[in-house]
């Protein structure tokens, strides 16, 4: 089991953002996580990644506590944020950082990027934030794929893309090998349906629906 969450609760400023969430993620799951704005989707993901301390309940990722054993947990998860963050490191520095921390040969990332027609050598001394939107997205995905993680988490990956960008993005996603589990936070089930085998709906901090498709 990749993720085991038992009755986890999280309160921000007096309002319950995660309300007794119970959820398991097994390997092979390709999940579309849906729900209205403010339902607690991002909070759930951030709890899995060890960013938030939950108030109560049990949460383990690959048998580890995401806060106390964040290094162990994050070795097995890749996170692709909603917006490419304005990282000021150059591409070379960024992939070296990832190589060092994730025990990965940076050339793996270059190789993965090349599959998406992104030539890193050509841009390696450019700051990440100066790349075009499409290039940033490709690089983030190349990084995630090269890390060989067991679980890939996407937080609304297409919210800021135009229709053409979205189409390209889904093409990139079809490169994700079958054996990896994925969790997409999304508002567009129709577009992502082909890539998923399970749907989870959240509302007001609760999981209200969870079905395999």
């Amino acid at each position: 089991m990749l993720v085991d969450a038992q009755h986890i609760n999280k309160t921000f400023l007096g309002s319950k953002v995660l309300d007794a969430v119970t959820l398991q993620i097994d390997s092979g799951d390709r999940i579309a996580l849906m729900g209205s704005n403010g339902a607690g989707k991002t909070t759930l993901v951030r709890a899995l990644l060890g960013f938030y301390h939950i108030d109560s309940g049990d949460l383990s990722v690959l048998g580890h506590d995401p806060v106390k054993e964040r290094v162990e947990v994050l070795k097995h998860i890749s996170f692709i944020p909603q917006l490419p963050p304005p990282v000021r490191l150059s591409i070379e520095e960024l992939i070296n950082f990832i190589g060092k921390t994730s025990d990965l040969d940076p050339r793996q990332i270059i190789k993965e990027a090349a599959k998406m027609d992104l030539d890193i050598a050509e841009h390696k001394s450019k700051p990440f934030y100066k790349l075009s939107g499409g290039m940033k997205q490709k690089l983030l995905i190349a990084i995630a794929l090269s890390r060989q993680s067991d679980l890939l988490i996407f937080d609304e990956p297409t919210a800021n893309l135009d229709p053409k960008g979205r189409e390209q993005f889904y093409q990139l996603l079809s490169l994700i090998p079958e054996e990896r589990s994925t969790l997409f936070i999304t508002h567009r089930l129709d577009e992502i349906k082909a890539l998923t085998n399970r749907m989870i709906y959240m509302d007001l901090g609760k999981v209200v629906e969870d079905e395999k498709i």
Partner: peptide
Amino acid sequence: ESNVLEYMLSFPVSL
């Protein structure tokens, strides 16, 4: 605030 921290800390680096 710009979520750079979120991204950089999503890699296995200890706090």
